[in-house]
């Protein structure tokens, strides 16, 4: 028994844990998203999405999720949200839009749900 092996990961509902298996599964889509740090690459993607996905070797499931702007599909195909956020930016979507898309809410409803939990707690030493 390996005392340092944590055992099978316990599932946390609705919460992707981006581990080695996901990183391997998602390498191509994440590599494509990483390339979007450069403006010329963003423009090349916009000019021809299919050719750009071909260049980075996305598999059928990843391409389909990108075509459908299906965030949960991209994650399920190995996408990591830190990289996907760069792709989302090309589509004009911010992380609150992504929140709405993944929870089946409008962005406004998603924002309202966060605002409904609003609070401010402040301490300043005398």
């Amino acid at each position: 028994m390996d005392q340092y092996y944590a055992g099978p990961r316990r599932p946390i509902p609705g919460t992707p844990v981006f581990d080695g298996a996901a990183a391997e599964r998602g390498f191509a889509i994440n590599a494509m998203c990483y390339s979007f740090n450069e403006d010329a690459n963003r423009k090349a993607f916009v000019a021809d999405e299919e050719a750009y996905m071909e260049r980075y070797g996305l598999d059928a499931e990843q391409r389909d999720a990108v075509r459908r702007r299906d965030v949960l599909g991209m994650i399920s195909a190995g996408g990591n949200v830190y990289y996907l956020a760069k792709l989302a930016g090309i589509f004009g979507l911010n992380v609150q839009d992504l929140g709405g898309l993944q929870t089946g809410m409008s962005t406004d409803d998603f924002k309202a749900r966060l605002l409904a939990q609003g609070l401010t707690e402040r301490r300043v030493a005398a």
Binding site: T15, P16, L72, V81, L98, Q102
Partner: peptide
């Protein structure tokens, strides 16, 4: 930011 629990 990610998953069905986004916004947690």
């Amino acid at each position: 930011l990610d998953g069905e629990r986004a916004g947690h």
